[in-house]
């Protein structure tokens, strides 16, 4: 069963949190291509959020090409959702790298030190 938690006090909107957690579940293989997501209303009830919140999360995922809603049947994970999400993640990485490298150049930190920092962080989180 898909495990989603919504932090109510968070500055990140609930629909965004739901969306990101579903993406993460797809990336980790917890949900696979072709599998059905919980119903929007069932999920809203379980997470104690309004129906419109889950409707918005699912419709965003649909617009991003990750899921597909079949009227009257449910919401299914598309084929190859990992490729779609990976592409999104890569874009995000590019934006973040821009910031990191700019800051590094401004502070005159040598490239070798930046690479080392990246390596250490990677090992720490992986």
């Amino acid at each position: 069963m898909l495990n989603i938690v919504v932090a109510i006090q968070s500055s990140i909107p609930a629909y965004e949190q739901i969306k990101e957690q579903i993406k993460a579940a797809v990336m980790s293989g917890e949900i696979k291509a072709g599998e059905m997501l919980p119903s929007v209303r069932g999920l809203a009830r379980e997470l104690k959020v309004s129906n419109i919140t889950t409707i918005r999360a699912y419709s965003d995922l649909e617009n991003e090409g990750i899921v597909n809603t079949v009227q009257g049947r449910g919401c299914f994970v598309n084929a190859l959702p990992i490729d779609v999400i990976k592409e999104q993640y890569l874009k995000e990485i590019d934006t973040n790298l821009d910031n990191i490298v700019k800051k590094g150049i401004e502070a005159k930190i040598p490239l070798s030190e930046l690479i080392l920092k990246l390596e250490n962080k990677y090992n720490e989180l992986n």
Partner: peptide, 12 residues
């Protein structure tokens, strides 16, 4: 009460 209302709204 909110829980009952949520349950009620399962039917669209």
């Amino acid at each position: 009460i909110l829980d009952i209302l949520r349950e009620y709204m399962l039917d669209e």
